[in-house]
Simulated assay, not measured.
Amino acid sequence: MVFLTQTGVGFVGNLSLLCLYNFTLLTGSHFRPTDLILNQVVLANSIVLFAKGVPQTLAALGWRHFLDDTRCKLVFYFYRVSTGVSFSTLCLFNGFQALKLNPRICRWITLKIRSLRFIGFCCFLCWALHLLINSFLPLIVKGPLNKENLSVDGDHGYCSWEVPERHSTLYTVLYFSPDLLSLVLMAWASGSIVLVLHRHRQQVQHIHSRVLYPPPSHEARATRTILILVSSFVVFYSVYTVLTIWMTLAPSRGQWVMNSSVLVSSCFPALSPFVLIISDTRVSRFLSYCRARTRCAS
């Protein structure tokens, strides 16, 4: 029930944002250049929930052999690709916001981020790189455990994997290096954003002191959203990494470790869309409009 609830709630949140971003992209109404990046984030999150949440829910309900060897390879491949794209595009969103607040970092890129074509190329590059980097996964992912393949290294209940010992270091580097690189870039961008905003606040502090409750600017709202997303990503990913290492190294692990790992890995894709929904002023304006129409109709 926990897996089912998490997957269902996450699907609703991501689908709502997909409708919003695609509507603004097609119509141009209240469109923001970063909508294209966030559209890729929620699209990747939806694939993560579908590839991880649905199979794990069925496995928790007792269905152990609903995927064969080929489907296991596809599920794990697209799960890992979409996870990497989600992290990379969030890092891209974070970096673009840092460049907007501090254009002196790189003036050429600062001019380019206003171009929808350049942003689309960056999103395409994220997908292409992760499709290429994770191409080794179909080689190590196997079907469900049976009496003939009990010597595999890992078991997800419905699929398993086996890493050749001579290539274990290479596979480990390929598996974790994209996420670690995203973490480093996120930390740099977040630190730059906090530093720039701190300096800006000191410069205009005398202006804000004349106003009792100054309204937050669009940059401040976007920055607050980014910092919340990055903080939650770091927390969930750190816990997931610890559980993954535990499952890999521990000689005997309980099923609760596996379930906890899956639950934590799906928390960010399931919860992050609601952070974006709450912080998006277009959503609040739309809800206010609907309430006003309802009152007029009544």
Rank of each mutant, 00 (worst) to 15 (best):
S88H: 03
Q202C: 08
A51Q: 00
F31E: 08
G84V: 07
A128W: 10
S288N: 06
P55M: 04
T24G: 00
C126S: 14
R210W: 10
L99W: 01
F23C: 15
L287G: 05
T5E: 06
V235P: 10
L137V: 09
A222W: 07
F268C: 03
P215D: 01
L20H: 04
N94Y: 09
I228D: 15
L61A: 06
R201C: 09
L17G: 05
S86E: 00
I113H: 00
R293F: 03
S252Y: 08
H208N: 14
V283G: 11
V12A: 14
V211L: 14
Y240A: 15
I47A: 01
E219F: 08
S298Q: 14
V163R: 12
Y289M: 09
W161H: 15
P215V: 00
V204W: 04
L227A: 02
M247D: 10
L263N: 03
T110I: 02
N146T: 13
D179Y: 14
R221Q: 09
C91Y: 03
C19T: 12
D280G: 03
T244M: 13
L243I: 04
V85F: 02
T225D: 04
V163D: 12
S217V: 03
S252L: 12
R71N: 12
F236V: 07
S168C: 09
L67S: 12
R117T: 14
F87M: 06
L61K: 04
K112S: 09
I140M: 09
C159G: 04
R221D: 05
Y158R: 10
V173T: 00
N149P: 01
H30S: 15
N149E: 01
V257F: 08
F233D: 10
F236Q: 02
V234K: 14
L129A: 14
L101I: 01
L18N: 05
L139C: 07
T34G: 06
Y175E: 01
V211G: 07
L129W: 11
S238E: 06
A128F: 15
S135L: 11
Q56E: 08
C290D: 07
S82V: 00
K100G: 07
